[in-house]
Each structure stands twice: as C-alpha cells, then as structure tokens.
C-alpha cells in the first residue's frame, strides 16, 4: 500500500483539472473534440463528463454540433467561450489567492 502511495502521482485538485482542460482547449485554438480533450487531460469518461457538465453550466465551454459534408455524420466540438478565456487569465491570480490563505 505504502509503496503504491509513493509511486502514484499527486492527485490533481478540481481547479487544476479545470485549468488543464482550459489550457488544452486554448492550445488547440479554442476548439477540440470531447474525446481528444479526455485523452489529453488524462481523464476517465465518467470524470470528464462531470467536469464538462460543470464547465458548460458555468459558461466556460459550449458545445457545437456540426455535420460533416462527406459522411453526413454529426460531430460534437467543444468551444472555449470568452468566460473560459477569462478563467484562464484569472487562474494564476486564483492560485496565488488560495496559496496566500492556505485554502
């Protein structure tokens, strides 16, 4: 048990996961497929669903459905909103604030 604890990486906080997701979205020009985001953010399907629902609820990310002309299949893309970009801007400030108060 102890050995497992030593080797496993530190669990990311909720804020860190959200910041990672937003960062990945920004790196991809503000547009990404949900599955790509899931792999790049290193999340399971279940966790990703929960975080994504929060991000959408808070207006940081929105979903866009587009229909492919070639195979007529609809594709879901995640789009970073202006509020999401603001979050990214304020992230370091939030981290600094939380660190100051030890929370």
């Amino acid at each position: 048990m102890d050995g497992q604890k030593e080797t496993s990486p530190k669990k990311r906080s909720r804020l860190e996961v959200i910041a990672d997701m937003i960062r990945i979205l920004q790196e991809k020009g503000g547009k990404i497929k949900p599955t790509h985001l899931m792999y790049k953010a290193n999340l399971s399907h279940k966790t990703m669903k929960g975080y994504l629902s929060d991000l959408k609820k808070n207006g940081l990310v929105k979903e866009q459905t587009t229909e492919s002309k070639s195979d007529r299949k609809s594709k879901i893309m995640l789009i970073l909103t202006n509020k999401g970009r603001d979050f990214s801007t304020n992230y370091s400030k939030i981290i600094e604030f939380e660190k100051t108060f030890g929370i």
């Binding site: 909720r14 804020l15 959200i18 808070n58 304020n90 939030i94 604030f97 939380e98 929370i103």
Partner: peptide, 8 residues
Amino acid sequence: KNYKLTKN
C-alpha cells in the same frame, strides 16, 4: 468571484 469559478 474565485468561488464562482472554482466551487472551492
């Protein structure tokens, strides 16, 4: 403001 974003 920070709480609204982080839900901490």
